[in-house]
Amino acid sequence: MKVLLPVDGSELSMEAVRFALRMRQGGLSLSAVLANVQEPASLYEMLVAHDPDVIDQVSAEAGLHALQRAQALLDEAGVDYECEVAKGDPAHTLIDISERFGCDLVVMGARGTSALRSAMLGSVSNEVLHASTVPVVIVKPVDPEGV
């Protein structure tokens, strides 16, 4: 089964990767697509950088950096995976990636690293849940008190 694992560098996105690995330990045949979506540059960033190629390069490097911890976990577990760093609206871009790579399942965290998006109670995961043509597993934060 090919699983899309959106990774934004947050601990919750890493917990989603660990959840997918637990499913594999339970017997699921698993290959993965690690995806990171960079939001488009702000007007301020475009004015300061003066060169759109610099913004694209920095964005791509940030995306690759965000995937490193997830790659290490998958390497350690011996899971085959592909990586995709894209730019755009996170939810719609993740749906596009899922379709383009032929994913059978999406496993993602309920909230990402963006403060605004966290305030919206997981708007990206909610939008992916409703727009995806394949099943979506949303991994919630672990309650530290175990309640």
Rank of each mutant, 00 (worst) to 15 (best):
A72Q: 15
S42R: 15
L67W: 12
G122E: 08
S123N: 06
P90T: 02
L28E: 06
V79I: 11
A16Q: 07
L28C: 09
P144A: 02
V17K: 08
S118Y: 02
D8M: 06
I55F: 10
R111C: 12
A72Y: 04
M120S: 00
A77E: 13
Q68L: 11
E61K: 15
A110S: 15
H92C: 02
D53P: 07
R100E: 11
M14Y: 01
S118H: 11
D53N: 15
E76H: 11
G146S: 11
R69Y: 03
A16N: 02
E99P: 01
D104L: 00
K140M: 09
K2V: 01
Q25L: 13
V128E: 12
E145K: 04
L12K: 04
L34H: 07
L34Y: 00
L129H: 03
S118N: 14
R117C: 00
Q25M: 13
V106N: 05
V48S: 11
L105N: 07
H92Y: 08
E127C: 04
L121I: 12
G27K: 09
P52R: 10
A70D: 02
E76P: 01
I97A: 00
L5V: 06
D89Q: 12
V33K: 12
D143E: 11
K2M: 10
P90Y: 01
L28R: 15
L47Q: 14
D143K: 02
P52W: 00
H65T: 12
D8G: 09
L43R: 15
T93F: 01
V85W: 04
P135M: 02
S42I: 01
M120V: 01
L94G: 09
R18M: 06
C103A: 14
G112I: 02
H65I: 09
A66S: 15
E82Y: 00
V7D: 06
V137P: 02
E15G: 02
L105E: 07
A119W: 13
V139W: 10
S31W: 03
